[in-house]
Design a protein around this nucleic acid. Structure first.
Lengths: 191, 191
DNA sequence: AGGGTTATTGATTGACGAGTCAATAAAGAA
DNA sequence: TTCTTTATTGACTCGTCAATCAATAACCCT
């Protein structure tokens, strides 16, 4: 029962199914057929809209990055001080449905994918640069070496994230945020 | 020209070739044939000695973990104070040839593999527990919440490691060590 | 109604890769 | 020497999966 204007709907469904499938399988070995089935269509249709598996995964990562970017921007808009700016970024990094099991696994997947795919690498660098730049703005009025502080907190966020992918039960979202924020506070107190 | 007692030699060659191959490809998609060819034998022989690809990769991870464990033990033997214990662990985490490009990529690979392979997961948990326990011993006389401190430094190590896999040029080994140790110092000063 | 476009899929192709096997050869044991 | 064990490989099987294609159907416009 073909209706017109299906393209955006299908693409969206596929991207979301890809995240869910990667998260559930906890693995990189997700096939186009699995994703397509979960999205309620044939694999042929997936290829029809994305051309290739890689393009589909790139679109998936772009989607994750877009959501994350929106969340950061939203939180930053509320921030009234440098401290609050940093806190906003940390909270966004661990926030909401989006940043749980499925998304986290996908995220990690793309970290690896970035070693072989140019497009993925470019996307990831972009995210890194933005994160770093946002942290820097917050840290600059507060510490002597904002670059160093941003690097530390950025790495700490990645590390906590990585551990959450492996052992989701070991630490809750709030605990993760608290852990990172405590380190932020130490950095600030040190000046 | 079959000589006897080839088994340990072949196994060793395969394990080392696997690390090199994963590191060079920067990817999980390493075939048994590629690894075997690099190790100077046929893929059939690799199967003969390891039974399956998974067993071969488990042996590879075990090898990496063994090397790391030895390095940590060596450094700990020299430590004369709690501070030095912690420093020893951090230095070992980023030390030497072993912990560069190829090994780091393999390491990250196993993090993912752990989500699907029971054996790999067990190995990784063992490593985590030991690392945590070692850090705890160092932190206990120095800070109020040693568990929290160990968790923070453990995550920071993983995060810095992850970033080095992605952008090896961004930070040198020594810089990585310095970054982590600075955070250790902050934790200690805080008490 | 009929031509063009979009949506959709089952079936197929083509590649690649893990694991198996039968065959060859050398070393040691009897 | 002959038998057994170990080493070794090329060729093969079997499965899987990305990608393609041909066919079908609904929608829109004229």
């Amino acid at each position: 029962m073909p209706k017109l204007g299906m393209e955006p709907i299908r693409r969206d469904a596929l991207v979301k199914a890809a995240i869910a499938e990667i998260g559930e399988a906890g693995s990189l070995d997700v096939t186009v057929s699995q994703i397509a089935r979960r999205a309620g269509m044939s694999s042929a249709l997936a290829h029809h809209y994305f051309g290739s598996k890689e393009q589909m995964l790139v679109a998936t990562m772009r989607h994750i990055l877009t959501l994350f970017g929106a969340e950061v921007r939203g939180a930053l808009a509320m921030a009234r001080s440098p401290e609050e700016r940093i806190e906003a970024i940390v909270r966004a990094s661990f926030s909401s449905q989006n940043f749980r099991a499925a998304t986290a696994a996908s995220w990690l997947h793309f970290y690896l994918q970035a070693q072989t795919s140019d497009q993925t690498r470019r996307l990831l660098r972009l995210y890194h640069r933005r994160l770093r730049s946002n942290l820097m703005v917050g840290f600059t009025p507060l510490v002597a070496d904002p670059a160093r502080a941003s690097e530390t907190i950025g790495a700490l966020i990645d590390g906590v994230y990585l551990r959450q992918v492996l052992r989701p039960e070991a630490m809750s979202n709030e605990e993760a945020v608290a852990l990172v924020l405590a380190d932020v506070q130490r950095l600030i107190r040190e000046g």
